Amino acid sequence: MVALPNFSAAAGLVVKAEGSWQKGKVETDAKRLATEKALHSAVEKAIRLILGEQEKEKVKKFLEDQVYGADPMKYVLNYRILSAGWITHFDTLDRTEDADSTQPFGIEKYHVWIEATIDEQTLREDLRELIPPEKRLITEVLVVILGLEDYGTFESIKNSIEELSLVREVSYDSFSSVKTTLKVAVFGSGHDLYEKLREKDTSLIIIPAGLQKVIITPDRGY
């Protein structure tokens, strides 16, 4: 398996992991499957770093639904193999259906040790509903308010934003009747802000514009 770097995310978590697979009739299958297990293990380690050990049930469900059985490279920016090779295990009698039955003593497994860089931004985005607010990354989101007709409407929108639990701070960037821009520090992303604000204030037309930008227009009913 060749891992090509993925430059779509700015930051990554570097973790080390191990994977192994029992020797079967086709040697290359064991090497490929051991590498995939190591990659899955690396993603699992990154998830535990983000969520913490106390969220074991949430981690287990996410792994079952989103990680195991899926392409592990979804969350892996790149990886390198630190070490790899065959090891004979004499302390187990477990055999897979594809195991090499010609080896009478012990079970031979291919082990891979890797160092992987995990796409933290993508992983956090998929985990956003599971991450407690205090563990979320603080992101500065640009909120663009269009079509303001009076200061009272602006104050109402600003108050709606400030009352959200994921909002840490709101500051002015620019102010005019045509376009007003706020800088909003949130625990999470612009998508999180969009979802929460849409639930809270149905009098606004809210448009997501990426992970770090939200556009708001008062709904005037015409």
Score class of each variant (00 low, 15 high):
25 K>A: 04
138 I>G: 02
209 A>Y: 07
200 K>D: 06
208 P>R: 05
12 G>F: 06
140 E>S: 04
156 S>I: 03
97 E>H: 01
221 G>A: 05
129 E>L: 03
106 G>T: 05
20 S>V: 00
45 K>M: 05
85 G>Y: 01
162 E>G: 05
55 E>M: 12
203 S>P: 03
113 W>A: 12
101 S>M: 10
48 R>K: 15
151 Y>M: 08
31 K>T: 02
122 T>C: 01
38 A>E: 06
26 V>W: 01
58 K>L: 12
81 I>T: 14
158 K>C: 05
89 H>A: 10
107 I>Q: 13
30 A>M: 03
22 Q>T: 09
2 V>K: 11
163 E>W: 01
93 L>I: 08
165 S>T: 06
222 Y>H: 10
18 E>Q: 13
216 I>W: 03
130 L>H: 11
94 D>F: 00
76 V>A: 10
165 S>Q: 06
1 M>L: 13
206 I>L: 04
36 E>W: 00
76 V>K: 07
8 S>K: 13
91 D>I: 00
141 V>M: 03
145 I>H: 10
193 L>N: 09
55 E>K: 15
49 L>F: 02
1 M>F: 07
195 E>D: 15
46 A>R: 05
174 S>W: 04
116 A>F: 12
17 A>G: 13
96 T>K: 12
56 K>W: 05
55 E>Y: 05
209 A>S: 15
30 A>C: 09
52 G>L: 07
88 T>I: 10
181 T>F: 02
4 L>M: 09
196 K>E: 15
88 T>E: 08
111 H>N: 12
53 E>Q: 13
6 N>T: 01
37 K>S: 07
75 Y>C: 07
84 A>M: 07
72 P>R: 08
185 A>V: 03
179 K>I: 10
4 L>N: 08
91 D>G: 04
220 R>C: 02
160 S>M: 04
150 D>H: 12
203 S>Q: 11
75 Y>M: 10
58 K>D: 14
121 Q>K: 09
84 A>N: 08
14 V>N: 07
159 N>S: 15
87 I>M: 03
75 Y>T: 09
55 E>N: 13
165 S>I: 03
39 L>P: 12
158 K>N: 14
197 L>R: 05
50 I>P: 11
9 A>C: 15
21 W>K: 06
177 S>V: 09
81 I>S: 01
6 N>E: 15
216 I>R: 01
11 A>K: 14
214 V>D: 10
112 V>K: 05
215 I>H: 07
110 Y>C: 02
219 D>E: 12
153 T>G: 09
168 R>W: 01
61 K>V: 11
47 I>F: 05
175 F>Q: 15
173 D>I: 02
171 S>H: 00
21 W>H: 15
66 Q>R: 14
8 S>G: 06
78 N>K: 08
88 T>L: 04
13 L>Q: 09
211 L>E: 12
22 Q>H: 00
144 V>I: 10
70 A>Y: 11
8 S>P: 02
56 K>M: 05
121 Q>P: 07
159 N>H: 09
184 V>E: 09
134 E>N: 06
215 I>E: 14
112 V>Y: 01
195 E>I: 14
192 D>Q: 04
198 R>N: 14
129 E>W: 02
218 P>H: 06
49 L>E: 15
138 I>Q: 13
21 W>T: 01
21 W>M: 09
41 S>R: 11
219 D>R: 15
104 P>V: 11
51 L>G: 06
104 P>Y: 06
90 F>E: 04
211 L>P: 03
28 T>Y: 00
157 I>V: 14
